[in-house]
Design a protein around this nucleic acid. Structure first.
Length: 441
DNA sequence: GTTTCCCGCCACAGT
DNA sequence: ACTGTGGCGGGAAAC
């Protein structure tokens, strides 16, 4: 492969293809000669990426006056900016559905970019997939519900309550949680549930459980949408101010992360972070201690105007959050903590938070909205009493952790959760050890 | 240098 | 076979 070509921003040749590991079989075939027509990147460059109201881009189907080289500017083409434009374009009362082709054309970008945006927007409830090529715009009004749901799901995942209905969307009913207002809006949940109803289980370390796994899960479990949700869950459940992207990647990947794996994950997180910050859900800052770039959760989705002013969130829209939107999306991978992570204090904080979660679920807290699913931990009741012990001496002894672990672990209906919980416990133990060592010396 | 992240190839899924 | 989706990582812009 001659590849490696100097592929500047304007050279089209397929550099990427070169070193691609390409999971599949025929490795060589890939090289399929690229006609390399008219520098596509240049075409895009020309496209106006028109902002808000702006009408259709002129560049219809890229023709080749592409050759004048305006300074190529990445900034003008960032996903974040594109997202703002996307939102500006569709965040209107009268917008109901969105066609991907249309969006791509309007914004003067290739389809591929629209997928990126749409996937993360869907993850935070701004739109839902209706059908091939079709999305329904829900708007920012859908965000709070989506976040709430995400949080609840995260908590459930941590506690071991079942998160997914038997497999068919129809049975969402038994979903225990009283998602107050998530009505099954109209009849077409089908489409969206199709997409994210991945009871994603595990990657490698598990053969496969009975019938609960789609074959496409493998692909889905790495999807940008899922990653977005898991990223968000990090903020929603760990009471941690900021996350740098590689911290997040590490947390989300778990151990055994190959370096390249890590890099890829971080690249994706950059994509996601850019979109989320353009929605004003997070913002870029620096970590207090290290000064490393990091992201802080804002949680107030707003539309960011070109000039950086915000459009207040239109709380109005009776967020018709369709239940199907990934309610069943269940990924054990998220939150796998790596005990070797250096930022213990931070994670300790998160751990404390998780403890609170357990307490809450043991009936201590005031979260009356939490309901155990069918797999209500048998020991939970009994444990209610001994449990303020646990609370009060949150950091008292490792024994506590182990007891807690023992009482819960067997109740997990799902190996993945079991693992996840195990990770937490292991991690806490080691942090606790370190902590006590430090403090006692 | 390092960090950020755009871009488009191409595998896989759906029709 | 064809089309829609979207993972993925090269490598260049930005810092």
């Amino acid at each position: 492969m001659d590849a490696a070509a100097a592929a500047g921003p304007s050279s089209s040749a397929a550099p990427a293809a070169a070193a691609r590991p390409s999971s599949g079989a025929e490795p060589s075939a890939a090289a399929a000669a690229q006609p390399a027509p008219v520098a596509p990147r240049m075409q895009l460059l020309q496209a106006p990426l028109l902002g808000a109201g702006g009408a259709g881009s002129g560049s219809g189907s890229g023709d080749a006056r592409a050759c004048r080289h305006h300074a190529y500017s990445r900034k003008q083409k960032s996903l974040g900016l594109l997202c703002s434009k996307f939102v500006a374009l569709y965040d209107r009362e009268d917008v109901e559905t969105i066609g991907l082709d249309d969006a791509a054309k309007q914004l003067g970008v290739e389809r591929r970019r629209i997928y990126d945006i749409v996937n993360v927007l869907e993850s935070v409830g701004i739109l839902v997939r209706r059908a091939k090529n079709r999305y329904t715009w829900l708007g920012f009004g859908g965000v709070p519900a989506a976040l709430k749901e995400l949080k609840e799901r995260a908590l459930r995942e941590m506690s071991g309550s079942p998160v997914f209905p038997p497999m068919e969307e129809s049975s969402t009913a038994n979903l225990s949680v009283d998602e107050d207002d998530e009505k099954l809006e109209d009849a077409d949940e089908d489409a969206e549930s199709e997409k994210l109803s991945q009871s994603v289980d595990n990657t490698s370390d598990k053969p496969d459980a009975p019938g609960c796994r789609l074959r496409s899960d493998h692909r889905k479990e790495k999807s940008l949408g899922l990653l977005t949700q898991n990223f968000v869950k990090l903020f929603l459940t760990m009471e941690v101010e900021t996350f740098s992207l590689d911290e997040a990647a590490r947390l989300l990947l778990g151990e055994g992360h190959a370096e390249s794996n890590m890099r890829t994950k971080v690249r994706r997180l950059y994509d996601i972070a850019n979109v989320l910050s353009s929605l004003n859900l997070i913002e870029k800052t620096q970590q207090a201690d290290t000064r490393k770039p990091a992201f802080r959760w804002l949680g107030q989705a707003k539309r960011k105007q070109e000039n950086n002013t915000m459009i207040a969130l239109p709380t109005a829209r009776p967020n018709k959050r369709a239940f199907g939107t990934d309610l069943t999306n269940f990924d054990n991978k998220w939150g796998r903590l790596d005990p070797t992570t250096e930022d213990k204090a931070k994670l300790m904080q998160g751990a404390g938070n998780i403890v609170k979660t357990f307490e809450r679920q043991l009936g201590q807290g005031n979260r009356s909205d939490f309901v155990y699913g069918p797999f209500h931990p048998a020991v939970a009741k009994k444990q209610e009493s001994d449990d303020h012990t646990v609370r009060q001496k949150e950091r008292k002894t490792i024994q506590d952790w182990e007891n807690l672990a023992v009482s819960f672990r067997p109740q997990y209906q799902n190996q993945a959760l079991n693992d996840l919980f195990g990770h937490y416990v292991e991690a806490w133990k080691s942090w606790y050890l370190d902590l006590t060592r430090e403090t006692s010396s």
